[in-house]
Simulated assay, not measured.
Amino acid sequence: MSNTLPQSISAVKKYDLRYTTQMTKTAFFSTKPFEMDAILRANQSQHEFIFIADPLNETTAKQAANCKAVCCFVTDVLNEPVLTKLKTLGIQMIALRSAGYDHLDVAAAKRLGFIVARVPEYSPEAVAEFAVTLLLALTRKLPQALQKVARHDFTLTNLLGVNLFQKTIGIVGVGHIGTAFAKIMLGFSCRVLACDPKPSEKCRELPIQFVSLDKLLAESDVISLHCPCTPETTNIINTLNISKMKTGVILINTGRGTLIDTIAFIHGLETKKIGAAGLDVYAREKGLFFEDHSNEKLSDTEFLKLQTFPNVIITNHIAFFSAEAVDNIAKTTVKNLAEMKSNI
């Protein structure tokens, strides 16, 4: 089983889609249309699925009635009240269709007796390649170039970029994704520094330097975050650590938004301590990302402030979103369901 965490599926609301067999009945919350085909292909009539468009919370948990499993995305709430509600409904298994599990109260899940599984390695290359995409867009000022061409301004004013060749790249967290990112950076002939108390074995084989966080912060031209969000790493990018960085450092975050103290980060941008940033995640993205707010006025002043910086690229948590990754998530989810079922 993949790090003791599985996946499941359910359909109501917009989709009215049911796929019935004689096996585990699973409610998929926060289901998007792009996922359904991949999940059904992977399932091959093994399980009964109910796809639910709503995110999981205390109010929507009742939609999992008569199911044995729920499958959740990073936007779903899996705190103790929700887990208790699921337990009263007879849910036995929780399948996370994500690598991260910071949205799950692990202690409560264990205490309530749930079997839990996740997808620890669906496509490290998808996220790593996207981190490089953000980095190259920043170093070569791609957004500004596109805006100028759209205005039919073909001058080179304000478009001077920098090479990555022989720059020092600091990677915080070298699990599967961080290791994939390190390999790509080595291909650019970069000097790569890594900080991780438990680096992957594959990463140990690479020609990179393992250093303390302080040394990484002080020497890196680029810092890319690939660590999970834990009590130790929450707000790891804070006022103190920003002060230790090189002036003009480029920061990339495709990990978790809560790795960054947003107020301190904004101050770093305003003082030009942080020269540029590529963010695919945001500390308060729940309820914001994965939804269409184009006809609404956003009230998150910190997010709106971040959007005013021309040297900041924000994307909507899409680093994972490749065809290969979606297929792998679906396959691992179905496999996890089968393995969890066998353990009941």
Rank of each mutant, 00 (worst) to 15 (best):
P231H: 11
S45D: 12
V192C: 09
L259Y: 03
A27E: 07
K62F: 07
M245H: 08
L225V: 10
A126E: 00
A108R: 05
N253Y: 02
I52P: 02
P81E: 11
R41S: 12
E35H: 07
I250H: 06
A128F: 04
C190H: 09
T31K: 05
C71V: 14
K183Q: 13
T262Q: 00
N79A: 06
L337T: 15
V74G: 02
Y101G: 01
H267K: 15
K25Q: 12
A128L: 02
K32M: 13
Q147G: 03
I250F: 00
V249I: 10
K244Y: 09
K13R: 07
H103L: 03
Q147V: 04
F210C: 10
Q144R: 15
F188D: 05
D280F: 01
L213A: 09
P228E: 10
E129I: 03
L135R: 04
V222M: 01
I169L: 06
T139R: 06
A194S: 10
I115K: 12
D214G: 11
T20D: 15
M93W: 10
V132F: 13
G257D: 00
T332N: 06
K335N: 14
F49H: 12
A218L: 06
C203L: 10
P199M: 11
T308G: 00
N57G: 04
L136A: 01
T315P: 07
D37P: 00
G113K: 02
A325S: 15
I314K: 06
V326S: 06
I252C: 04
T254L: 10
T333R: 09
F265V: 09
A65G: 03
G100K: 01
T262V: 10
T155M: 03
I260C: 08
A65N: 13
P120E: 11
P199W: 12
A109P: 06
S123G: 04
L306K: 09
V334F: 10
L225Y: 02
S212N: 07
L225N: 08
H152Y: 14
A276S: 14
A131S: 14
C203M: 09
T21Q: 05
F28H: 09
T315L: 06
S45T: 15
V312F: 03
L146E: 05
I236L: 14
Q166Y: 02
F181T: 03
A65I: 10
T332L: 13
K273H: 12
C203S: 12
K14C: 10
A64I: 12
D292S: 08
A319P: 12
V249C: 06
I39H: 03
D221Y: 03
E232M: 10
V192W: 04
D300R: 05
D280G: 02
F165K: 14
I274N: 00
S30A: 12
A180N: 06
K62E: 12
D153H: 02
T59M: 06
D76S: 08
L56N: 00
V334I: 13
D37W: 01
L142P: 05
D221M: 01
T21V: 07
